[in-house]
C-alpha cells in the first residue's frame, strides 16, 4: 500500500500551484519533498489527507481515491494518516493529554483508561512524559512540535505526513526531531512524507528526496542520487546559491 498522486492539478484563483503532479510514495519509506517556498509542498500533503481536493487528477492513498470518498470513509482513512502540522496546530484550549487523545476519542471501542494509557505511551515516545496537564502555550517550540507528533501517531497511523517538522528549531532540537522521525519508521513501520527546507535534515531522515518545482516533480532519487545530481536548480537549492537557479532558468 502506498500513496499515489497522478496528474494532479490544483489552482487557487489565478495561482496554478500543482500542474500535473505525479508522485508515488512507496510503502515503508520516508520521502522528503523539498522545494522553494510557495512551490506547493504543503498543498501536496493536504491533498493526501483530503483537506484539499484536486481540480483534476487522482490522489490515491492506501488504494482509496481520496476525492471520491464520502465523509465517513474519509474519516476512516484519516485514522490511518497522522499529520504533523508546521506549527503543530495543537488545540490551545486543551492540555497536552487532551490534545493527544483527540484522535483516539474518535476511535470506536476505546475506553478512557485505554486512551490515557495510549496518550502516555505516545508522549513517552516523543520524550514528553509528565507534560500531560500542561497547556500548549506553556511549552517550548520543540516540545510543541513533539507534542504534535505524539498526537499524530496516537491512532497508530500507517502514514505520517510532516509539514516542516524542524523549521524554527535550534540544531539540537532539530536532531531530536529527526531521530524521532527515523524512529517512527523503524519502530512503527510508518510510511513518511516530510516537507522540509532543511537539507541536512532531509539527508538524515529520507530514503528518497523529490524536488518540487513549478507544480511538478523536478528531480527525484535516493539521498545519494540527489547529492550527486547536476541539476543546477537542485544544486542552487541544496547549496543555497540563487545564481545557479537564475542560470538554470
Amino acid at each position: 500500500m502506498s500513496i499515489l498522486l497522478k496528474d494532479v492539478h490544483r489552482a487557487f484563483g489565478q495561482n496554478h500551484v500543482l500542474r500535473g503532479l505525479d508522485l508515488e510514495v512507496l510503502d515503508g519509506e520516508t520521502l522528503s519533498i523539498i522545494g522553494f517556498s510557495g512551490a506547493g509542498k504543503s498543498v501536496i500533503l493536504k491533498h493526501m489527507v483530503g483537506l484539499l481536493r484536486p481540480d483534476s487528477g487522482d490522489v490515491i492513498v492506501d488504494g482509496r481515491n481520496v476525492s471520491e470518498l464520502d465523509v465517513g470513509e474519509l474519516n476512516e482513512l484519516r485514522r490511518d494518516i497522522g499529520y504533523v502540522f508546521q506549527f503543530a496546530a495543537l488545540f490551545d484550549s486543551m492540555n497536552i493529554a487532551e490534545n493527544v487523545a483527540m484522535g483516539l476519542r474518535r476511535m470506536p471501542d476505546m475506553y478512557d483508561d485505554e486512551i490515557m494509557a495510549r496518550v502516555s505511551e505516545c508522549l513517552a515516545l516523543v520524550d514528553l512524559e509528565g507534560t500531560e496537564d500542561r497547556y500548549p502555550s506553556e511549552l517550548s517550540g520543540g516540545m510543541v512540535k513533539r507534542a504534535g507528533l505524539a498526537r499524530a501517531i496516537a491512532t497508530k497511523p500507517k502514514y505520517l505526513l510532516y509539514d516542516e517538522p524542524t523549521t524554527g528549531l535550534d540544531p539540537v532540537t532539530v536532531t531530536v526531531i529527526d531521530r524521532l522521525i527515523v524512529r517512527m519508521k523503524e519502530e512503527l513501520g510508518v510510511t513518511g512524507v516530510v516537507i522540509t527546507h532543511d537539507i541536512a535534515s532531509a539527508y538524515r531522515i529520507s530514503d528518497r528526496i523529490v524536488m518540487l518545482h513549478e507544480g511538478r516533480i523536478r528531480t527525484s532519487g535516493t539521498v545519494d542520487v540527489i547529492k550527486e545530481s547536476r541539476d543546477p536548480l537542485l544544486r542552487s537549492f541544496l547549496e543555497g546559491r540563487p545564481e545557479l537557479a537564475e542560470r538554470a532558468s
Binding site: R78, G82, Y83, F85, Q86, A89, F91, M102, G103, R151
Partner: peptide, 16 residues
C-alpha cells in the same frame, strides 16, 4: 485563530 493556526485542519485530520 484556529483557522489561521491550522487547528481546524488538524481537527479534520483527526477525523472531526
Amino acid at each position: 485563530t484556529m483557522r489561521v493556526t491550522e487547528q481546524i485542519d488538524a481537527l479534520e485530520t483527526l477525523a472531526y
